[in-house]
Simulated assay, not measured.
Amino acid sequence: MDTFLISTGVVAVAEIGDKTQLLALILAARFRRPLPIILGIFVATVLNHFAAGWLGLQVAGLVSPAVLRWVIGLGFLAIAIWALIPDEMGEEEAQIKPYGAFLAAAVAFFLAEIGDKTQVVTVALALKYQPLWAVIAGTTLGMMIADVPAVFVGKWIAARMHILRYVRFVAAAVFALLGVLALLGIGG
């Protein structure tokens, strides 16, 4: 139980003010579908943190931080460019098809967590505490504690403002900034 509680607390605190909280807010403003977004965050976090814990134990030290920084930075820049491409479907279609919100949240969160401080914390916790499932369950709960409120704040803002047409520009700017910061080795 200590492993679970320590993992939950450490990640919940580490996630406060993290880029994924902003990502949750942006996704909620775009899709206005909290449940699929929350499920996407959950699935992405479980997969990412399991991979971090397991692979961190198996291949620690094989990939240099410089290579990882470039992969993450270029990935964020590619997502920024992709975010500038207007959607082909209307707002009504986005609300009818909740799997779009789920997939967007799952993919975006999985990618955003690669090399993020909470992923690094998950690796460290997995190295120090056992069993691995308790670390993963705790880090996942910590992420949900920090990011779920951002989903509801984003939905609330979107319901009161007509910002939907600007969300892709904000998202592109955020991902471009994250890409540049990753390339420069700043933040994370």
Results as ranks from 00 to 15, higher is better:
residue 16 I to M: 15
residue 112 A to H: 02
residue 92 E to G: 07
residue 145 I to M: 11
residue 102 F to K: 06
residue 178 L to Y: 10
residue 135 V to F: 01
residue 55 L to Q: 08
residue 53 G to A: 01
residue 185 G to K: 10
residue 112 A to R: 04
residue 73 G to A: 08
residue 107 V to K: 07
residue 116 D to A: 10
residue 140 T to R: 07
residue 49 H to E: 08
residue 12 A to N: 06
residue 127 L to I: 12
residue 130 Q to N: 14
residue 156 W to L: 14
residue 116 D to P: 00
residue 146 A to F: 03
residue 98 P to V: 12
residue 153 V to G: 00
residue 150 A to V: 06
residue 43 V to P: 00
residue 50 F to V: 13
residue 150 A to S: 11
residue 170 V to F: 15
residue 28 A to D: 05
residue 169 F to A: 09
residue 154 G to W: 04
residue 41 I to T: 06
residue 20 T to K: 09
residue 92 E to K: 13
residue 173 A to M: 12
residue 143 M to R: 06
residue 169 F to E: 04
residue 49 H to D: 09
residue 60 A to D: 15
residue 64 S to D: 13
residue 63 V to S: 07
residue 62 L to G: 07
residue 39 L to K: 03
residue 64 S to Q: 09
residue 122 T to C: 12
residue 138 G to K: 01
residue 59 V to H: 11
residue 13 V to E: 12
residue 46 V to H: 03
residue 150 A to P: 03
residue 6 I to N: 03
residue 22 L to D: 01
residue 125 L to R: 00
residue 53 G to M: 02
residue 84 L to A: 05
residue 172 A to V: 08
residue 45 T to L: 07
residue 149 P to S: 01
residue 42 F to L: 15
residue 98 P to A: 12
residue 63 V to M: 14
residue 170 V to K: 09
residue 111 L to K: 03
residue 134 A to Q: 14
residue 169 F to P: 02
residue 172 A to T: 08
residue 74 L to K: 03
residue 45 T to H: 07
residue 128 K to D: 04
residue 78 A to F: 09
residue 6 I to Y: 10
residue 45 T to N: 12
residue 28 A to K: 07
residue 178 L to W: 08
residue 8 T to Q: 00
residue 15 E to R: 02
residue 104 A to V: 01
residue 119 Q to N: 10
residue 118 T to K: 05
residue 62 L to R: 12
residue 14 A to I: 10
residue 135 V to A: 00
residue 22 L to Y: 04
residue 162 H to E: 15
residue 30 R to N: 12
residue 60 A to P: 04
residue 51 A to W: 11
residue 177 L to C: 13
residue 65 P to L: 12
residue 69 R to C: 07
residue 36 P to I: 00
residue 128 K to I: 11
residue 12 A to P: 07
residue 140 T to W: 09
residue 29 A to G: 15
residue 56 G to S: 10
residue 81 I to D: 08
residue 171 A to C: 13
residue 103 L to D: 05
residue 116 D to Q: 12
residue 68 L to F: 11
residue 34 P to F: 08
residue 116 D to Y: 06
residue 139 T to Q: 03
residue 158 A to K: 02
residue 24 A to R: 03
residue 5 L to R: 11
residue 27 L to R: 07
residue 97 K to I: 14
residue 162 H to G: 13
residue 168 R to F: 10
residue 95 Q to H: 15
residue 81 I to Y: 13
residue 41 I to D: 00
residue 53 G to E: 02
residue 10 V to L: 14
residue 185 G to F: 02
residue 155 K to Q: 15
residue 123 V to T: 08
residue 184 L to H: 06
residue 21 Q to D: 04
residue 2 D to R: 15
residue 18 D to Q: 00
residue 139 T to H: 03
residue 23 L to H: 00
residue 139 T to K: 06
residue 171 A to D: 10
residue 78 A to L: 13
residue 152 F to N: 02
residue 89 M to K: 13
residue 115 G to E: 04
residue 139 T to C: 10
residue 163 I to L: 15
residue 97 K to W: 14
residue 22 L to F: 13
residue 90 G to W: 11
residue 78 A to V: 09
residue 29 A to P: 05
residue 73 G to K: 02
residue 66 A to Q: 14
residue 37 I to H: 06
residue 188 G to Y: 06
residue 157 I to T: 09
residue 184 L to M: 13
residue 108 A to G: 08
residue 148 V to S: 06
residue 188 G to S: 02
residue 122 T to H: 09
residue 179 G to T: 02
residue 33 R to M: 14
residue 178 L to H: 07
residue 27 L to Y: 02
residue 179 G to L: 04
residue 77 L to Y: 09
residue 142 G to M: 07
